[in-house]
C-alpha cells in the first residue's frame, strides 16, 4: 500500500459516506398532485391529493389548512383513501384579506410523521359576492399559530419539481466549490511564479487550472442533466449557467496562450498574468452578477444559496462533507499531475 498524506485519507473516508447518505436517506413527505387547482369562496371545495412518502391511515390525526399570508382556514374533513391518496374538504368563508381578493393559497398538513407543505397549492377564485354573504359560513379565517408536529424522522426535504433530484445537490454543487478553490490555488501559484521565477510554481499553476476546468466542465454537464429534468431543457440561458460557461471559456484561453508560446519562461510569465486576470473576472461573473437577476437557480435573485430557506439542516450534514471531499479530490488529482509534469520536464 502507498503511504498517503493525511488529507487524502479524509477524501477516502468521506466519499463513501457522502454517496451512501446521499442516496439512501429517504425523502420527507410531500404532495405530488393536487386537483382541482381553483377553490371558490362560500362553497365546499374537495381537493384530491396524491402524496409522496406519506402514510395516511384512517383514524390518524391528520389536519390540513389552506394558508394565505397570516390567514389560514382548516379543513372540515379529510377522507383517506390509501396511504398516498386523500381528499380534503374545505369550506371557504370568504376572502381572508379584503385588500387583495384573490391569490394563491398554500396547503399545510399536519401528520404524525411531521408537516407537509405545498406552497402555491391552489388559487382562490376572485368571485364577486355581496358582503352580507361573507359571514354565513361557520368557518372563519384565523391568524392563530398553526399547530404542526415536528418532523419525527431523519430525511431530506421534499421540494416540488425537484423531488428525488434534490440528492444531486451533493454531487453537482460541490464540483463548483472545488473548481473555485482550484482556480484560487492556481492564481496563488501564478503570482508566486511571477515573484520568484521558479518553474515549479508554473507547473503547479497549470495543473490546478486544468483540473479546475475539468471540474467546471463536469459541473456544467451535471447541471445541464439536472436542468433537463427540473427546468425542462438542458440549457435555459439562465444567468448563472451563462456566467459559468463564460468563465470556463476564459480559462480555456489560458491553455491557448500557453500553447502559442514556445519559451518556457515566456509561457509561464504571460500565462501567469492571464491567470490573474481570469480569476479576477471569475469573482463578479459567478458571484456578483447572478445575484442581481432573477434566476432559476435556488438562492439567486437576491440571496446566497446557503441560507436556511435553500439548504435544510439535514442536508448540510451531507453537503459540507461532500464539498470537502470534492476539494480534496481536486487537489489530489492536480498534485499528481504536476508531480508527473515535473518528472517529465526533468525538474526535481
Amino acid at each position: 500500500m502507498v503511504k498517503l498524506s493525511w488529507w487524502k485519507w479524509i477524501f477516502i473516508l468521506l466519499m463513501p459516506y457522502v454517496i451512501l447518505m446521499g442516496f439512501l436517506v429517504p425523502l420527507g413527505q410531500g404532495i405530488t398532485e393536487l386537483s382541482p387547482y381553483v377553490v371558490y369562496p362560500l362553497k365546499t371545495n374537495k381537493l384530491d391529493i396524491v402524496g409522496y412518502n406519506t402514510r395516511f391511515t384512517e383514524g390518524q390525526s391528520i389536519r390540513a389548512w389552506l394558508k394565505q399570508g397570516d390567514y389560514h382556514i382548516e379543513a372540515d374533513n379529510i377522507i383517506v383513501r390509501d396511504e398516498r391518496h386523500a381528499s380534503l374538504i374545505f369550506t371557504i368563508p370568504g376572502f381572508p384579506d379584503t385588500s387583495k381578493n384573490d391569490g394563491d393559497l398554500s396547503l399545510v398538513m399536519d401528520t404524525p410523521d411531521g408537516p407537509l407543505v405545498l406552497p402555491s397549492a391552489v388559487n382562490l377564485a376572485a368571485v364577486k359576492y355581496p358582503d352580507s354573504l361573507a359571514l354565513i359560513s361557520s368557518q372563519k379565517w384565523s391568524t392563530n399559530k398553526l399547530a404542526v408536529r415536528a418532523e419525527s424522522n431523519f430525511n431530506f426535504p421534499f421540494r416540488n419539481i425537484l423531488g428525488e433530484t434534490i440528492r444531486n445537490t451533493y454531487f453537482h454543487v460541490p464540483l463548483w466549490f472545488a473548481m473555485i478553490l482550484l482556480f484560487f490555488i492556481s492564481v496563488l501559484k501564478s503570482i508566486r511564479y511571477l515573484q520568484k521565477k521558479q518553474i515549479e510554481d508554473d507547473a503547479k499553476a497549470e495543473s490546478f487550472v486544468l483540473i479546475g476546468v475539468l471540474f467546471g466542465i463536469l459541473g456544467t454537464v451535471t447541471g445541464s442533466i439536472w436542468a433537463k429534468f427540473t427546468w425542462g431543457s438542458f440549457w435555459s440561458f439562465d444567468v448563472k449557467q451563462n456566467m459559468a460557461a463564460i468563465s470556463l471559456l476564459i480559462y480555456g484561453g489560458y491553455f491557448i496562450i500557453r500553447n502559442s508560446l514556445q519559451d518556457p519562461d515566456a509561457k509561464a510569465r504571460v500565462s501567469g498574468v492571464y491567470n490573474v486576470f481570469a480569476f479576477v473576472l471569475l469573482i463578479p461573473l459567478i458571484f456578483i452578477i447572478p445575484r442581481r437577476y432573477d434566476s432559476l437557480h435556488p438562492g439567486n435573485g437576491g440571496n446566497p444559496a446557503l441560507g436556511s430557506q435553500d439548504l435544510d439542516n439535514t442536508m448540510r450534514i451531507v453537503f459540507y462533507p461532500a464539498v470537502i471531499a470534492y476539494m480534496i479530490c481536486g487537489i489530489w488529482i492536480a498534485q499528481l499531475r504536476y508531480r508527473i509534469k515535473l518528472i517529465y520536464n526533468n525538474i526535481y
Binding site: I19, L20, L24, L27
Partner: peptide, 23 residues
C-alpha cells in the same frame, strides 16, 4: 429504525442500484 421502513423509491429497489453504481 423508521429508515428501515420502506419508502416509495426504496420499495422499487432501484435506489440501491443507483447507490451501488455510484460506489
Amino acid at each position: 429504525i423508521w429508515m428501515l421502513d420502506v419508502d416509495f423509491l426504496r420499495s422499487t429497489g432501484k435506489i440501491y442500484t443507483v447507490a451501488l453504481v455510484a460506489l
